[in-house]
């Protein structure tokens, strides 16, 4: 009897779908990557008074040149000598716009209470920036 030997087939790993897998992995990485972008409100702080000097020179500015925006601990805002009250963004925009119409070089002094939330200060500075106020001073009481 004739014994037939089976011919061995050549072993092969299919690589045709390799590029599909690789591209899927790339798409996955691209879709899930989050870039740590820095975005925020930029401000230049005033320089500190030189050491050894007495108190910095004090200049009195009237309401026509400087607007005080005092943020209280509860988030209410006092504009100049007015009583503190809750002011919405659009109203704050209008106040700032009016002040800038009166004097384009108006200085806005944002005085934030030490116990007020940081986001309240950001809100006021954001509104000032949105109305293109350029002279902004930050202080606390």
């Amino acid at each position: 009897m004739k014994v037939g030997r089976k011919r061995k087939g050549k072993a092969e790993i299919p690589t045709a779908s390799m590029s599909d897998i690789a591209f899927l992995l790339i798409v996955f990485f691209m879709a899930t990557t989050k870039f740590d972008v820095k975005e925020g409100i930029k401000i230049v702080l005033p320089a500190a008074a030189p050491e050894g000097s007495q108190k910095a020179e004090t200049i009195q500015l009237g309401e026509d040149k400087m607007t005080r925006l005092q943020i209280e601990a509860d988030g209410t805002i006092a504009v100049n000598k007015e009583a503190p009250r809750e002011i919405e963004n659009h109203e704050l925009d209008n106040i700032i716009m009016k002040k800038l119409q009166d004097n384009n070089d108006m200085i806005f002094k944002v005085i934030t209470d030490r116990d007020a939330e940081y986001s309240q200060m950001i809100r006021v500075v954001d509104r000032l920036k949105s109305q293109r106020a350029e002279k902004i001073s930050l202080s606390t009481n």
């Binding site: 820095k38 925020g40 401000i43 702080l45 005033p46 500190a48 500075v125």
Partner: peptide
Amino acid sequence: MRQLQDAETLVVAFEA
């Protein structure tokens, strides 16, 4: 911020 002024690093950004 007071310490920033002492160090004369005056340009700041508040991330938001």
